[in-house]
Design a protein around this nucleic acid. Structure first.
Lengths: 203, 203
DNA sequence: TATAAAACTGAATAGTTAGTCATAAGGTAC
DNA sequence: GTACCTTATGACTAACTATTCAGTTTTATA
């Protein structure tokens, strides 16, 4: 699918990816404001000026990056088979989420750090787009919860609350995994997370 | 207890609080780097120079603020009666947490945004202190979980995981509450949160 | 009220950084 | 090989911001 591109176009695309990848690391480590364009350029092995032929400005780098990842995550969700029994779907969702964050921990750090700044009221088109996708993402999980409730698999609670709780547990495990040095495997937490979410803590 | 302070000392203390309160709003809104000392000074109705008679520098303002709040939160935890049955304790912990975040949403925003930057390796004394207190905070919740397990009230899972899950659910509800405009009461979520944590989602 | 100490002010300083642009290098097509 | 076009470079600019400090105002005391 990356075919019927000229050599030049392919190089351009690869360079773009390299810049985004460098930016991901820097933004994760320092946050949007403390990260400098110079540093991103250096890590990507380009001059600063070159970055501006790929992206309009620093914010454009940032938002392109996050947008790409949000889409990848959403794609992943769709790929986990809505045809399955809702319950099985939820188990897979948990595993897929943990896998995604394990493979994209910089992204996780970026969104947890910067989500506050995506709040309503912003004029920027990309930011609005991003907010829209965050919301649509939550809605997807909610939809899954609703299906499971209708099937009688889950308690009849507001799907929104179920989704918030599940995402919260996943995020919390991910954050702690990162904080403690990301040494073990995050995916291995799937069973505990699933058990805690479905069965609860009570004996 | 604020007695046997001279008038001057009392004013000084009040001013310090005012500056921290202004800083809290600005830091929550913009994050540490994007917040400017000018803006904090203006909101606190002081000149920029005056801030430097109260605090060593911008970071000192920030860390003093967070340290104060961490301590308040810890204090709150201790105040909820360790003598009670563990189960009752957990219920109160959930309510107390939600209440605290409802009353300190700026603090919540600040720590979720900046926690990444508190990671190991920092030389700064205050930062290390802060990290230590975060850890000790998690340990407190873990201790509670352990007590409840020993009593046979909770499943025999790693207390660390139980604590992570509960904190995750609470944080997630808080984040969503803030994201959607903080209009309803967050404390009212206590029952849902408790139910989800203890009973789980499964029907 | 006079005096000294404390606290405040805001302009000046020193440093940083996003973004630009004239110039150079590299690639493409004939 | 040459003329042309695309991309890369990095010094430069303009703007911003943390911190300082000399001079001013306020407060406490006697």
């Amino acid at each position: 699918m990356t075919k019927n591109l000229t050599r030049r176009e392919k190089v351009k695309l690869a360079n773009r990816e390299a810049i985004l990848s460098a930016a991901e690391e820097i933004f994760a480590e320092k946050g949007f404001y403390a990260a400098t364009v110079d540093e991103i350029a250096e890590r990507a092995e380009f001059s600063k000026g070159a970055l501006y032929t790929y992206f309009k400005n620093k914010e454009d780098i940032f938002l392109s990056l996050v947008l790409d990842k949000v889409d990848k995550q959403k794609e992943m969700n769709q790929g986990l088979g809505a045809s399955l029994a809702p319950m099985e779907c939820i188990k897979r969702l948990i595993r897929a989420h943990l896998k995604f964050f394990e493979e994209n921990k910089e992204y996780f750090q970026i969104i947890t750090s910067e989500r506050n700044r995506f709040k309503p009221g912003t004029k920027n088109k990309l930011r609005r787009e991003l907010m829209k996708r965050f919301q649509s993402y939550l809605k997807d999980v909610e939809g899954l919860m609703k299906a499971a409730i209708d099937k009688g698999d889950l308690k009849n609670l507001t799907p929104n609350y179920l989704a918030i709780a599940l995402i919260g547990i996943i995020n919390s495990f991910t954050a702690q995994w990162i904080f403690t040095g990301s040494e073990s495997s995050l995916q291995e937490m799937s069973e505990v997370v699933t058990k805690l979410f479905l069965e609860g803590a009570k004996a």
